[in-house]
Structures are given as structure tokens and as C-alpha cells.
């Protein structure tokens, strides 16, 4: 019962935070390009605006799938984001363990993909195939990273791993060589998951006109965008609290249940997000799908396998 109440409180919090983070991301991106950029609350304006627009369903689309899929995507990613946030607030494991969080976070891109291909647009189909390839490319190293963590600490519970960092008084990424490799692989997977340049070929604007999103508009587009920003926030928050839980460094001052620890964690998430999403987006050109796939199976996969090997050896 308690779990449900905490999760219900977290939903609006996650909604606000994810849109706010997206606004900050856009502002920083603009300032790096010497532009003024949109106001930080622009994503909220967009969200409200999109919800006041007409609902358009293309004639070629299978309308049931096309309309339900954005709702599932938004719900899954907000739930996926609330579980870690709620766990930190409550100070215990809320809702589920790491497997379910990653499962929920994978639901949202898959749902958007299905929605795109159900629209009957050829660009949606190309977007589907590209996204599928990318999913295979980054999902495997990401899961192996989590596997490595669980092998190391014999736990899949999210809050236990956070507590471990507080116990050892250091970031997980710095604790052991195996964890450093896992953290590096996880960080490298971030831009692919968030679909930012250089790995945004599944919704490349100039190539396939936003791929899966091509036929979406109005409230549906609003939901899909919300799903995207919520899952981006969720994954950054997850990565930070798993590998870079900064309050652990200052455990003398913060007990993990306090709001201060949460705030510090959020600030770290923001910095992490800027460096894994905004900076690559600013300084790189988009890769081709083949090149990106090759990169992911060469570098992050190798890193994650090394990490598992090291953790089995007990390093």
C-alpha cells in the first residue's frame, strides 16, 4: 500500500523533472552553438500546445495500434523513471528491481517503433528497421553491464546497490576495475538510448524525417515526446545512482534518506546528462547505421564483457 502511495507522489515529480531537464538540455545546446535558445520551460509549452491540437490519424495507419502505443510508451517510461526516484525517496526498494526498470525503459522505444511502423509510412518502416538495429547494438552491452554489477554484489535490487556505495563511501565506478569498465560501457550506451547525434539515425531529421515519429501529431506526439524525455531522465538518473552516487562521497553530511541527498543526486544527473547527451550532440556529426553498430559491438560490448570477466575473477 505504502509503495503505491509513494509511486503516485513520484509520478508528477518525474513528469516535471524530465521536462525541465529537457529544457535545460536544449538551452545548453543552444548556448554551445552561440544561440540564445528557447526558454527553459519550453517543453511544458510544447506539451500543452500539442495537447490542444487536432488528433490526426493517417488513413493508411492501423488506428488502434497507432493511438494506444503512445499512451503505453509514456506510462512505461514514467513508471520506469519513478521506481528509482521513489526508491531513493522512500529509502527502500520500491516497486521492483533493476530488471524491471530496464524492461520498462526498453518498452518505450519499442512502442514508438511499433507506432511508427503501424502508420503505413515508408519512413516509419525505415525508422523501425534502423531502431531495431540500434536496439540490438546498445541493449546487449547495457544488460551485460547490469549483469556485471549483480555478479559483483550478488544483488539485483536497485536500492541495495545504492546503499553499497554509501557503505564503501565511494562511487561504484571507482570502487573496482570491473565496475569502472561497466560504468564506461553504460555511459557509452547513453547517447544511443537517448537517440541523440551521433547515434540518432533512427530519427534522423534530414534523412528519414524523424522516422517513427513522421506521422505523429497533436496529443500523440506530445505523449511520445513525454515518453522520450522521461526515459532519457530515467536512464541518466539510473546511471548516476548506480555508478556515480555522489552523496556517497559526503555520507558524513547526508544520510541517504534525506532530501539533500536526492537534490545532490539530481544535480549530478543534470551534469551527467549534459555530458552524455548535450555535448556529443553538439560536437559530432551523425554516423551511419552500419558504423554505429560496428562501434557498439566493438567498444561497449568488449568493455562490458571485460567487466563481467573481471567481476567473476573477483576484481
Amino acid at each position: 500500500m505504502n509503495t503505491v502511495i509513494i509511486l503516485l507522489i513520484t509520478f508528477p515529480l518525474v513528469f516535471l523533472l524530465s521536462l525541465l531537464f529537457e529544457g535545460i538540455d536544449r538551452k545548453v545546446h543552444a548556448r554551445m552553438q552561440k544561440r540564445i535558445g528557447p526558454p527553459i520551460i519550453q517543453p511544458f509549452y510544447d506539451f500543452v500546445k500539442l495537447f490542444n491540437k487536432e488528433r490526426i490519424i493517417p488513413m493508411t495507419a492501423s488506428s488502434r495500434i497507432f493511438t494506444t502505443v503512445p499512451i503505453i510508451a509514456a506510462a512505461a517510461s514514467i513508471l520506469g523513471a519513478s521506481i528509482p526516484v521513489a526508491s531513493l525517496i522512500a529509502g527502500s526498494n520500491v516497486g521492483g528491481d533493476l530488471i524491471i526498470i530496464l524492461y520498462l525503459l526498453t518498452i518505450s522505444p519499442i512502442m514508438v517503433m511499433i507506432g511508427g511502423s503501424s502508420s503505413g509510412n515508408p519512413y516509419g518502416a525505415v525508422g523501425f528497421s534502423r531502431k531495431m538495429t540500434m536496439l540490438i547494438a546498445y541493449e546487449v552491452p547495457m544488460l551485460i553491464c547490469i549483469l556485471s554489477v549483480s555478479v559483483n554484489y550478488t544483488s539485483l535490487a536497485y536500492y541495495d546497490i545504492v546503499l553499497t556505495q554509501v557503505k564503501i563511501g565511494s562511487l561504484l565506478a571507482l570502487a573496482r576495475p570491473s565496475m569502472a569498465a561497466a560504468a564506461a560501457a553504460f555511459v557509452l550506451c547513453m547517447p544511443a538510448y537517448t537517440e541523440t547525434v551521433p547515434f540518432d539515425m533512427s530519427e534522423a531529421k534530414t534523412e528519414i524525417v524523424h522516422g517513427s515519429l513522421v506521422e505523429y501529431g497533436g496529443p500523440y506526439l506530445g505523449l511520445v515526446k513525454l515518453a522520450k524525455s522521461a526515459s532519457n531522465f530515467a536512464l541518466s538518473f539510473l546511471a548516476v545512482s548506480l555508478f556515480f552516487y555522489t552523496p556517497a562521497l559526503l555520507e558524513r553530511y547526508f544520510s541517504p534518506e534525506l532530501g539533500g541527498a536526492m537534490l545532490l543526486c539530481l544535480v549530478t544527473t543534470l551534469i551527467f546528462m549534459v555530458f552524455t547527451m548535450t555535448v556529443p550532440r553538439t560536437i559530432f556529426a551523425r554516423l551511419k547505421i552500419g558504423q554505429a553498430f560496428k562501434f557498439y559491438w566493438l567498444v561497449p560490448l568488449t568493455l562490458s564483457i571485460i567487466s563481467v570477466a573481471l567481476s567473476i575473477l573477483g576484481l
Binding site: 554551445m32 552553438q33 552561440k34 544561440r35 553538439t282
Partner: peptide, 18 residues
């Protein structure tokens, strides 16, 4: 790789040119 990193970060400290 990442030729623009320095300039992009430097642009953060300066006013936008708009």
C-alpha cells in the same frame, strides 16, 4: 575526433551572438 569540443564549451562562457 571532437574538434569542436573546446569551442562549444567556450561558447558557454560568452554571450550568444544573436
Amino acid at each position: 575526433l571532437g574538434n569542436m569540443l573546446r569551442d562549444a564549451l567556450r561558447a558557454l562562457l560568452h554571450k550568444p551572438v544573436t
